[in-house]
Simulated assay, not measured.
Amino acid sequence: MTTLHTLVLALLQGLTEFLPISSSAHLILPSQVLGWPDQGIAFDVAVHLGTLLAVVGYFWRELRQLLGAWLRSLGGRRDEPAAKLAWIILLGTLPAALFGWLANDLISEYLRSARVIAITTLVFGLLMWWADRRGRKTQPLEGISLKTGLLVGLAQAVALIPGTSRSGITMTAALLLGLTPAAAARFSFLLSIPIIVLAGGYESLKLVASPEVVDWGQMLLGVGVSFASALAVIHFFLKAISRIGLWPFVLYRLLLGALLLIFFW
């Protein structure tokens, strides 16, 4: 990989990981459309580490409260709202973790294509538009139920299919289940942390077993660029989501999906 490839792909990862437009699709497309070489396992680990550091850093105070309340709940104190939310996040992670463990190789072999990305980009873009229009948008994050958390977690499992968008499908599900846009975005970001940790750990194990030579300079650059861009996205997206809704991202997905269908069908 050249430095230009590293900068562009790391920026794409940082900008798209937490926006509802699919980071996996944007990392796959340069090789499909521009003929760029596959970025390799090491780069995937690096840019996911960057986005993980960004979301953990942004929610650091809240994560400390959640962790503390969760630990106290293990000792019998289960009446804290933060402990309930922590358990919902952990249980909501299970569907994607299980589906990823069972189907990751199958998805990687058969579904990482521009045609699949085009279809999922369009289909889940339209579903996101429906949720943005029809969701009740009344439930704050503090009132989220275990049932809602598990259903959003099931939706997160679908995001393993390239082009779906993890943040897009989880916010879509959360809006359809009645959460406010701000609550849907916040829960989506918090729910991303355990699954990014698990995915990064899985990719790291593959990297250890791989003969791939690691260019540490390029990897550090990828971490830095993905971290900075993801941090900016989280900050501005949370401020803007209640005001602008999801329609700009729906429009982007429809345009991207249509162009991909024209180009690859």
Rank of each mutant, 00 (worst) to 15 (best):
A173R: 02
L175S: 02
S210T: 06
R186T: 08
A174I: 05
V208F: 03
G153L: 11
L150N: 13
L160Y: 07
A184K: 05
L207V: 14
L177S: 00
A155C: 09
L150A: 12
L198N: 10
Y202V: 11
L146C: 15
E142T: 10
A131K: 00
A157R: 04
W130A: 15
A159G: 00
V208S: 14
W216Q: 07
D132C: 09
A183C: 01
I161G: 07
P194C: 11
G135E: 07
K137T: 08
L198W: 14
A159E: 02
K137N: 12
P162V: 07
Q218Y: 11
P181L: 15
A182I: 13
G201N: 08
E212I: 12
W216N: 04
T164W: 08
Q156W: 10
S204Y: 09
F189I: 05
L141R: 12
T180R: 08
V158I: 15
G153M: 01
W129R: 00
E142K: 14
G168D: 03
S188P: 10
L175Q: 01
R186V: 01
P194H: 01
M171R: 00
G217C: 09
G153F: 07
A209P: 12
W216D: 07
T148D: 11
T138P: 04
A182R: 15
L175P: 02
T164R: 03
S145T: 06
L146S: 13
V214G: 07
A184S: 11
V213R: 11
A183H: 02
T170D: 05
P181T: 15
P181W: 14
L150F: 13
T138S: 13
R186K: 05
A199T: 10
L151K: 06
S192C: 06
S165V: 01
R133N: 06
S188V: 09
R136T: 07
L151E: 06
A173N: 00
A184R: 02
T180L: 13
P162T: 10
G149L: 10
L146Q: 12
T138E: 15
L126G: 14
A131C: 00
G125C: 04
A157C: 09
T172Q: 02
F189M: 03
L191D: 11
S145K: 02
K137M: 10
Q156P: 12
D132Y: 08
T180H: 04
L190E: 12
I193M: 06
W129F: 08
G125F: 09
V213S: 03
S204I: 12
I193C: 01
